[in-house]
Every structure is written in structure tokens, then in C-alpha cells.
């Protein structure tokens, strides 16, 4: 109480001023039609602005839920596309009636750890053997629908990815325009470019050509985008081009990915094993 009195003695003018101005403001708004209308109007503008902000803030909290459901939906849509189907029709006569069955399935996953700065980078996603993930499945980025890497090892709930930004990663990729294919490797350094090697010298290359997955493996369906040709040159003493590829997926900010599963991988693998054993 003493402090309160002391405060009033010291700042009495200011306290009285504030009280009196509040009283005046009340009188102005209550008794003058014009000012009252402005006050009511401004007040509703301010309150609706505050409400707007609050709603936006709430939306932000629901955002991750929405993103999860959208990722699931996208995975389902990707499975419906033609390059994820196994064509069952056997072309024996001219009458074409396409009969397809599911060849690739897509499972949405979230990236829980990631690196792009090292020479051998790694990535972890929140899906594992419990969700049907096994090593050597493909990983496709959710936003740009482009190649990210390959599953290397799995625990029950998590999987380690060998991203394209790793010295041991090698993915079969082809030039969309003419079909020549080679291996996509990464020589370290810039995480936005990779190198496509073993393209024969007689291939006609144009800067800006699209590089996509070749489909010559059980990992990725054909036609998943990898990037575009930045520059190319011949390796001295060889008959092959080396192409610098601008990667489509920005691994530095990747959040959601799809795990691609080939439903006929065992069959294909067994067959190829048989051939190599002979």
C-alpha cells in the first residue's frame, strides 16, 4: 500500500492522465454518434484480425496431419500410374486389350535424419520391416517425384537409405529422348549435381535433356525423373561420355519420400541368379 501511494506521488500526473483519458475516451465513444461508429467499426476490424491470426496458428498445428494424409493419398495415386503396372496381356494378335496388375507399390515415409555435406551421405526414414520395407527398395522424393536413393538396411521401424549422394551409390538411368542408358554416380562435393557415366560416344546429346530411371532393375519403375543434362564430355581414352546431371530432387530439404516396392522382385532375382550361375 505504501508503495502504491509512493508510486502515485511520483507518477501522479501520469496516472491521473491515463485515468482521465480513459474516461474521456469512454465519453467520446458513448455519447458521440460519429466517433462511436468509428470505434465500433475499428473494434470489429481488430477483433476479426485477431481471430484470423488465431485460426492460422491453429491450422499450423494441424499441418503435419494434413501433410501425412496427403502423402498417403499421393502414394496411392502413384500406384495407379501405368509405369507401376505389370502388363499381363500377351501380345499374340492384333487385338489389344490391356490387362494389367500391380507391379510397383508406393509407401509414404517421413525423413527423420539426413545429410548432404559429407562425401558419403546417409538418410533415415520412419518405416521399417514392420511396414514391409526391405533392403534394395527404391526411394522417390515426394514433392518432385524424382529419385532419392535405395534402401540399404532396415530395423523394425526405421530404414537406412543409401542416397544418390554417396560414393557407392549407382543407379541405372537413361536419356529420355533416345533411350541410351548408363550408371548414375556421385563424385562428392556439390549435392545438386551427379554424374552419368558409360553413355556411348555415338549417342546424340543435347544440354537440357531429361535423365530418367531406365527401368532395367527391380528397384525403380521406368520414367522416374533424375535430372537434366548440364554439361557432358568424353573421358580421355574411352569411348564413353560422362554427363554432369542437375539433380531434380533437392536432398538438402527433403521431408517426405515414397518407398517403391517391386512386387515381382523375387521372381526376377531368382531368374537372374540362375543365369549368372550357369
Amino acid at each position: 500500500m505504501r508503495n502504491l501511494i509512493f508510486l502515485f506521488v511520483k507518477h501522479g500526473g501520469t496516472v491521473t492522465f491515463v485515468l482521465m483519458e480513459l474516461l474521456c475516451l469512454y465519453l467520446v465513444v458513448e455519447t458521440n454518434t460519429e466517433q462511436g461508429a468509428i470505434y465500433t467499426n475499428s473494434f470489429s476490424v481488430i477483433s476479426s484480425a485477431i481471430n484470423n491470426r488465431a485460426t492460422k496458428a491453429k491450422e499450423h498445428f494441424y499441418m503435419s496431419e494434413v501433410a501425412d494424409s496427403l502423402a498417403r493419398e499421393n502414394a496411392a495415386l502413384l500406384q495407379e500410374r501405368d509405369n507401376a503396372q505389370f502388363i499381363k496381356t500377351v501380345f499374340k494378335d492384333s487385338l489389344l486389350d490391356l490387362d494389367t496388375e500391380q507391379l510397383y507399390t508406393f509407401t509414404a515415409a517421413k525423413v527423420v535424419s539426413n545429410s548432404v555435406k559429407l562425401n558419403n551421405n546417409s538418410m533415415t526414414i520412419n518405416r521399417g520391416t514392420n511396414h514391409g520395407i526391405r533392403p534394395s527398395m527404391g526411394i522417390v522424393s515426394a514433392g518432385s517425384n524424382s529419385v532419392v536413393g535405395i534402401v540399404k538396411s532396415c530395423s523394425k521401424n526405421y530404414s537406412r537409405i543409401l542416397p544418390i549422394l554417396h560414393s557407392q551409390s549407382k543407379i541405372s538411368a537413361s536419356i529420355k529422348r533416345n533411350g541410351y542408358f548408363g550408371g548414375l554416380i556421385w563424385r562428392g562435393g556439390d549435392p545438386t549435381v551427379a554424374n552419368l557415366i558409360d553413355i556411348p560416344k555415338h549417342a546424340n546429346l543435347i544440354i537440357g535433356d531429361t535423365i530418367q530411371t531406365s527401368g532395367y532393375s527391380t528397384i525403380f519403375p521406368e520414367g522416374i525423373m533424375v535430372g537434366i543434362i548440364d554439361t557432358f564430355w568424353t573421358q580421355p581414352g574411352t569411348n564413353f561420355y560422362e554427363i554432369k546431371v542437375d539433380l531434380r530432387s533437392d536432398l538438402g530439404k527433403i521431408k517426405y519420400v515414397y518407398v517403391v516396392e517391386n512386387l515381382k522382385w523375387r521372381e526376377l532375382e531368382d531368374l537372374e541368379k540362375e543365369v549368372s550361375n550357369e
Binding site: 492522465f17 483519458e21 474516461l23 475516451l25 465519453l27 467520446v28 465513444v29 458513448e30 455519447t31
Partner: peptide, 12 residues
Amino acid sequence: DSYGIHASASVF
């Protein structure tokens, strides 16, 4: 007939 308007200015 403008309660509060002149008063608030004078208080100021």
C-alpha cells in the same frame, strides 16, 4: 455537445 472530445484534449 461533444462530451469527452474537448475534455480529452484539455487533459492532454
